[in-house]
Nucleic acid binder design. Structure first.
Lengths: 171, 171
DNA sequence: TATTGTTATACTCTATAACTATA
DNA sequence: TATAGTTATAGAGTATAACAATA
C-alpha cells in the first residue's frame, strides 16, 4: 500500500507498518487461539469469551444485555450463542425476580469446568505467541500504548454505533 | 478472568491486561474499518485486503496462491472472493503462460480507482482510532514490540499450519 | 504424484425486523 | 413509550472434499 498514490494522505510508512502489525498480530493470535479452543473444548472464541466473562462475574451471573455489550454483537447473535451454550449445559438462563424482562445467565459447574480445562492451553498459546517473543519492557510499553488507545476508543463511539434500542440524544 | 482458578498458570495481571487490550483494540479497529469500507465501497475487509495487495504488487498482478497465503484463508475461500471481485470488474483472472495451472489475478483500473476512493477514509479511520490517541514515542514503541511479535509468529507456524494442499501424516 | 485452482455443499455466524412481555 | 429478549429469516462467509487440469 506504500505506493498506492502519490498523495496517499495521512499515514507515514511507520504508521502504516504499525497498523499492519496490529492487524496481523491480532489476526494470527485470534486464529491460533480460536483453533485451540475449538480443538480442546469445541468452543468458538466468542463462546469462550461469554463463558470467561461469566466465570469472572460475581456469582457467575450476568444479564444478557451485559454480555451483549461486552461482546459487541447484536442481541439476537447473543441469544443464538447462549442457546448453544445452554443446550450443552454450560450455562443456564432464568428471568430475574427484580425485573421480569431481564434474563440472568449463569455459568454451570460444567461450564466452569470447561473453562478451567481449556484455559491453561489458551493461556499457553497467548504466552507463546504474544509474550515469549517480547523483550524486557515490551509488556509495559504495549500496555501503556494500547491502554491509551483503548480508552480513547471506548470514549469514542465508532461513528454509527447502533445501540439498537438505545440512543436517544446524540444524532 | 483474573480469578478463574487459584492456580491459573502463566499470565500475570499485566499480561492478561495487555492481551485483552490487543484483542479489544484490534477488534474495534477492524469493526470500524470494515464498516467504513462497506459503506464507502461496498467492500468487506477481506476484499479490500486483496485489492490492496494487488495494487501494491508489481504490475498489479499476483497468483491466487500468493493471495491465499497472504490472506490466510482457504483456497476455495479466495476463489469465492475473487469471483465476487471479478464479477464487479475490479480484477481479472487469466492463466499464466509459464505454468498453465497458475491463475494470475490483476487489478483493473476500476479496482485501482475503488481502492483510491476508499483509501483516504480508511486511513482517516485508522488515524483517528489508532494514532490520534497516541503520545509521543508510542508509535515507535508499538512498532518495535509488535514487529518482534510478528516476526516470531511468522517464523513459528501456528500449529498444524495447513501445508497448503494436503496433509497426510498427522491425523 | 504433486500442485493449482474450481465447484458443490454444508454449516456457522451475524444482522435485521417483527414480535412478545414487562416497566 | 421504552426496554429486554426471542424468533424468523435471509445473507455472507468459510471450510471440506471431490474434481479437473497441468507439472
Amino acid at each position: 500500500m506504500a505506493g498506492v498514490t502519490d498523495e496517499t494522505p495521512g499515514l507515514s510508512p511507520e504508521e502504516l507498518g504499525a497498523y499492519f502489525a496490529v492487524m496481523e498480530v491480532s489476526s494470527l493470535l485470534q486464529y491460533a487461539v480460536d483453533a485451540h479452543l475449538r480443538a480442546e473444548g469445541d468452543l468458538s472464541y466468542v463462546q469462550f469469551q461469554i463463558l470467561a466473562r461469566l466465570v469472572d462475574a460475581p456469582d457467575g451471573r450476568l444479564r444478557m444485555t451485559d454480555l451483549a455489550d461486552g461482546v459487541v454483537y447484536s442481541r439476537s447473535g447473543l441469544t443464538y450463542q447462549a442457546g448453544l451454550l445452554d443446550k450443552r449445559g454450560l450455562i443456564t438462563r432464568s428471568s430475574s425476580p427484580d425485573d421480569e424482562r431481564v434474563i440472568v445467565v449463569t455459568v454451570t459447574d460444567s461450564g466452569r469446568g470447561l473453562v478451567a480445562r481449556v484455559l491453561p492451553g489458551h493461556v499457553a498459546d497467548v504466552r507463546r505467541l504474544l509474550f515469549d517473543p517480547m523483550a524486557t519492557g515490551d509488556l509495559a510499553a504495549l500496555s501503556e500504548v494500547l491502554g491509551r488507545v483503548r480508552a480513547h476508543m471506548r470514549a469514542t463511539p465508532p461513528r454509527s454505533a447502533k445501540p439498537r434500542a438505545k440512543r436517544r440524544g446524540a444524532g
